[in-house]
Design a protein around this nucleic acid. Structure first.
Length: 322
DNA sequence: AACGCGGGGAA
DNA sequence: TTCCCAGCGTT
């Protein structure tokens, strides 16, 4: 059996000329986002990164402005009532992020002297900060050299270097290697590169309808464009459940609780046809720390309930924010 | 590696 | 309706 044909010569990284072109494009066309301002604090950048996890920039902007006004330092958020934090999170989605962000503020206040820690390991130890966010804070807040691999950067590098249309749902070892190899050596250049290539993915090399005519890599550096922009063999295939999911009902319950404590009838009315689903979602919200049970008040003058009744699940009361 | 976790805007 | 969005934590 003869050896398989040699793969086409892959470039595992972008030449310096290409990174310089992307940085020049960014200087010309990048958005003026407030967390990119030179005087943005490390804390404010950390907050922006958490909010931007799975939530688009345009929706984050007003919430971030309000948070920075109300809680300009970690100690401010650490001291805030959690219910207020969840209300201020509003409809950014995935409200567990808000809980983790407040926990993060408390750890920074109590264990790091109120300063966002440096180093990938110390950052990853904070609640809600994973591989991407630790690298992003290192690069954007501390101006350190770190390989940032968000969905935008992964898409740009996979298209230009691999010639594939989509990077897939998860960061792979191969993609880690691409981001590491493409990172400019100089610290300052590496920071600019991360910002620039991320922005290129957000504005030009988009998932849906890329604007290749505006791309500085189109002519000489993009394998995907050279191949005629082939669609991937398999669709992204991320079947995301829609109506009827627990996630949707959890969101509806949280919307109710943001307005104030809610009685059991109001919660049950969100899905009158499926009390079991309501019960399940109430339970997971409480378990997640996003809601608190309101104990049922025994009827005035009534005799004590049966002593053996240790489980009150059947007698669910209302819920409120923690 | 796969799954659950919100919500809104665009194709 | 579907897809996508500066992902993370758990199993």
């Amino acid at each position: 059996m003869p050896a398989r044909p040699a793969p086409p010569a892959l470039q595992s990284h972008l030449p310096e000329e290409a990174t310089a072109a992307v940085i020049a494009w960014f200087d010309r066309s990048g958005r003026d986002l407030p967390w990119r301002h030179p005087d943005a604090s490390a804390w404010s950048i950390l907050v922006s990164e958490i909010m931007l996890q799975q939530t688009p920039v345009v929706r984050v902007l007003p919430r971030w402005q309000e948070w920075m006004r109300r809680w300009p330092a970690p100690a401010d958020l650490a001291a805030a009532p959690t219910a207020e934090v969840l209300r201020a999170w509003d409809t950014l989605g995935y409200p567990r992020r808000a809980l983790r962000l407040q926990e993060c503020a408390r750890v920074i206040t109590e264990q790091h002297g109120g300063q966002v820690p440096r180093g990938l390991e110390a950052l990853r130890a904070l609640p809600g900060i994973g591989e991407y966010t630790a690298a992003a804070i290192t690069a954007f807040a501390h101006h350190g050299r770190a390989a940032v691999a968000d969905t935008n950067i992964r898409r740009v590098l996979v298209r230009t270097l691999d010639g594939h249309a989509h990077p897939g749902p998860a960061l792979t070892a191969h993609q880690r290697a691409l981001t590491a190899a493409s990172l400019p050596e100089g610290r300052e250049q590496s920071v600019r590169w991360n910002q620039a290539v991320m922005e290129l993915g957000a504005l030009v090399c988009t998932a849906r309808a890329p604007r290749c005519e505006e791309c500085p890599l189109r002519e000489r550096h993009c394998r995907w464009f050279a191949a005629g922009r082939p669609e991937g063999t398999g669709a992204p295939a991320r079947t995301q459940a829609f109506a009827g999911t627990d996630r949707q009902l959890r969101g509806q319950i949280m919307a109710l609780l943001r307005k104030g404590p809610a009685g059991p009838e109001a919660i049950a009315a969100l899905d009158p046809n499926d009390p079991e689903r309501v019960r399940r979602c109430r339970g997971t919200l409480v378990a997640d720390g996003l809601a608190v049970e309101i104990p049922q008040q025994p009827a005035a003058g009534a005799a004590g309930e049966a002593a053996g009744d240790t489980e009150s699940a059947d007698l669910a009361g209302g819920l409120r924010l923690p």
